[in-house]
Amino acid sequence: MTETAVRIFDIMACNVYWDFDGSPLPREQHKFLVSFYPTKGVPTPELIDRIVARGPGGYQVEFTNQLFTPANTDGYIYDRTLDYYWYMVNLSTGFMPEGEYTIEVTCTDGTVLTRSRTQRQDSTEALVSAYRDNRQRMLDSFTPSGRGRLSEGTALTGLECSWSTLKELAGQDAYYIYRLAEGGSAREFDTQNLTWWDNIFMQRIRGGDVAAGLNRGGVTVPEELKPDTTYAYFVEVTDANVQSETNICIFQPHQVFTTP
């Protein structure tokens, strides 16, 4: 197999609780995601002809081979730190039922790849209920937050961000993923150009940390931030640190701060 051959790394088919401030989209959603190993020398989207996701009851949706943006919520994202692409589509169709979900990838050379997983519902009910009951307490716990400017003299490398977890507030285990980018709102947050993110999936696979992200209540950002720049971050709550084992993702509101 050549380095440019398309190979599926993993997939997601999971419910999403979309709690971004000011979003016109419904809170209860569903998403499909398929990630690929790097295709050295050739951008993976040039090797993809079609991606289709299928679910219970004859449900079917096709991914669009385009750049993913907050406006279209459908397309591919490039992770420059790992040199790989993944495709994602967020669907405003409410939570989807339990059952088997399959993603089928047709490559430009005619090769067809498939991967399936079984989505469960119990963790959606447990995490979303715990989050709704403790939402304001979680939002109040974020540091930094409040759209303020960090204190003069704050180091631009090693910024510490923290929050309360559902384990602390409700006794509910969950995993946490942190993403940081320049911008002052969810609309300005560029998923294609993250300053840094806490990739618990790779920590699990590469580092062998089976508990990566579990009940994590904070991170230290290793990247040097720009001075006098506004940043936004959000923390995703999930029930797993393996893509194909994830059943629910909770997207919490963005927290905004400006560096000195």
Rank of each mutant, 00 (worst) to 15 (best):
V34M: 07
V34G: 01
S35L: 02
S35Q: 08
F36W: 01
F36Y: 03
Y37P: 00
Y37K: 01
Y37Q: 00
Y37I: 00
P38M: 06
T39S: 04
K40L: 10
K40A: 12
V42Y: 06
V42G: 04
V42D: 01
V42E: 12
P43C: 04
P43M: 05
T44E: 02
T44F: 00
T44L: 04
T44V: 08
T44Y: 00
P45F: 12
P45G: 09
P45A: 06
E46Q: 12
E46I: 01
E46V: 00
L47S: 09
L47Y: 04
L47H: 02
L47W: 04
I48S: 07
I48G: 06
I48Y: 06
D49A: 14
D49I: 03
I51M: 15
I51K: 00
I51V: 15
V52W: 03
V52Q: 09
V52R: 14
V52S: 08
V52N: 01
V52H: 06
A53M: 07
A53N: 01
A53W: 07
A53C: 06
A53V: 07
R54H: 07
R54A: 09
G55W: 10
G55Y: 07
G55D: 11
P56V: 11
P56R: 10
P56Y: 09
P56M: 09
G58W: 15
G58Y: 13
G58I: 14
G58H: 12
G58F: 12
Y59N: 05
Y59C: 03
Q60I: 07
Q60N: 03
Q60L: 10
Q60D: 00
Q60M: 11
V61K: 11
V61F: 08
V61Q: 09
V61S: 13
V61N: 04
V61M: 13
E62G: 10
F63H: 05
F63N: 02
F63Q: 06
F63T: 05
T64E: 13
T64L: 11
T64I: 08
N65D: 11
N65H: 05
N65P: 04
Q66P: 04
Q66D: 15
L67P: 03
F68G: 05
F68D: 11
F68V: 12
F68M: 14
F68Y: 15
T69S: 15
T69E: 05
T69V: 01
T69C: 04
T69H: 02
T69K: 02
P70C: 07
P70A: 05
P70V: 13
P70S: 03
P70R: 14
A71E: 14
A71L: 13
A71N: 09
N72E: 12
N72Y: 14
N72W: 10
N72V: 14
T73H: 10
T73K: 14
T73A: 08
T73W: 08
T73L: 15
D74L: 08
D74E: 12
D74P: 02
D74A: 14
D74H: 13
G75W: 08
G75M: 12
G75E: 07
G75K: 09
